[in-house]
Amino acid sequence: MKRLALFTVILAGVLFAATASEFPRLGDPDSAPSRHLSPAYIQGSLPQTHTPNFVTAVLGDYRGFDTMFETAVVFLAGMSCFFILRALRRRGLTEVYYYRHKPTGVVLAMLAPRRISPRTSCFERIDADWTPQDMVVETMCLFMVPFIQVFALYVIAHGHYSPGGGFQGGVLLAASFILVGLSRDLRTVESLLTEKTAILTAAAGVCLYAGTGLLALFFGGNFLDYGAYASFFGAAVPAARSMGILIVEIGVALTVMATLVTIYKLVSSRGTVEEGL
């Protein structure tokens, strides 16, 4: 089996290598992809959309339809992760919850349906593979979280002028939540961003994107033609396009953040969202 795989792979590699002479050399400014569409994007971006970062302009405006469905794919991936791990899991798994009695340090094990009410102040829930948490690590990680979030908001809002945008900012926001989950525990993340809120946020992001496109129809433009909002914003058409790109980037950021946090919660807890890493 392994020899056959190796033979197939080497054969495919040789066939690919034989086609390499047809491709343009590295960094050829006159290659076919660089001659036809790219000059239009590079020269049209600033006068048409007021966006110096060509990548953001192409992402949000010229190819907005593409990006909308990529966002929908991210949302669908998060939903299918939820259905695979959480909604379709078999009942009757033996689960044990551990509680520590704070004054004495005695640990109680409770079988699945039974629980100690979280309002009981002298018991605290601990993970099954609980290890004493390092105070230095936890404090420093929680100290970093606000800075990561502020940087993420900067990346989203400043995507027109510097590298960045909705995807990167959303991932950074998700990373701040995951950092809390890694340094503390999953229940803290769950209290900050519950599963229901996360899925609703992801859906709201996709709806914000699609709704921005749909609303343009009522202002007399095409679907996803943000230039139609010029009268609404009271600005010129390129400035309205710039504002439209910012709105859809926020939608993308919401979807990516909520989806990635949901996937992390599900994968790290085997779908129970009780005990994380």
Partner: peptide, 29 residues
């Protein structure tokens, strides 16, 4: 236009990376 890299492949691959991590999540599930 030769003074700037072609932005179109960057856009296509940027979205592909984000979709790849979402599909990796489904695969891990």
């Amino acid at each position: 236009p030769a003074a700037y890299a072609n932005p179109l492949p960057h856009v296509l691959m940027l979205t592909a990376i984000v979709v790849s991590v979402a599909t990796l999540g489904v695969a891990l599930a």
